[in-house]
Simulated assay, not measured.
Amino acid sequence: MAFDSISDFFAMGGYAFYVWLSYGLFFFSLLCITLHCIYKKRNIFKKVRLRLEREKRIKQASKLEETL
């Protein structure tokens, strides 16, 4: 679809509200999904780090127990 001017482009032939709203909702959804993935990734790495630290403490305690 060709437009005569930039204002015609933004008006989208009278359907601007629906067109730009759909673009806005799409980018908002994309942003929410991205932020959610980042949050979940950090949460997973935090849990893994805590688990590794716990396992390390358990190994140290068992070694200490063996020496006694």
Results as ranks from 00 to 15, higher is better:
5 S>M: 05
16 A>W: 02
6 I>D: 07
64 L>Q: 13
34 T>D: 01
10 F>A: 02
26 F>I: 05
63 K>T: 03
55 E>V: 00
55 E>W: 04
59 K>R: 15
38 I>T: 08
56 K>G: 04
56 K>Y: 03
66 E>S: 13
17 F>S: 12
53 E>L: 11
23 Y>L: 08
5 S>I: 04
51 R>C: 09
27 F>W: 14
28 F>S: 05
55 E>Y: 03
50 L>P: 00
1 M>K: 09
1 M>L: 14
43 N>V: 03
47 K>V: 09
55 E>H: 01
43 N>M: 07
12 M>T: 01
45 F>Q: 14
16 A>L: 01
44 I>T: 10
53 E>A: 11
39 Y>L: 11
30 L>G: 07
8 D>R: 03
21 L>N: 14
28 F>H: 02
43 N>A: 12
33 I>W: 06
41 K>R: 13
68 L>D: 01
10 F>Y: 14
15 Y>L: 07
51 R>Y: 13
43 N>Q: 14
12 M>F: 04
57 R>F: 07
24 G>I: 02
64 L>T: 06
14 G>P: 01
10 F>L: 06
58 I>V: 10
33 I>H: 02
20 W>E: 08
31 L>T: 14
17 F>K: 15
46 K>G: 00
43 N>T: 07
64 L>V: 00
61 A>H: 04
39 Y>R: 15
64 L>H: 12
55 E>C: 03
49 R>C: 00
65 E>Y: 05
19 V>F: 10
51 R>Q: 14
10 F>V: 04
36 H>F: 15
58 I>Y: 01
20 W>Y: 09
8 D>H: 11
61 A>V: 00
43 N>W: 09
33 I>F: 10
48 V>W: 03
61 A>Q: 11
37 C>F: 10
55 E>I: 02
5 S>T: 15
65 E>F: 04
24 G>V: 02
67 T>L: 13
42 R>Q: 09
40 K>R: 15
7 S>A: 07
63 K>F: 03
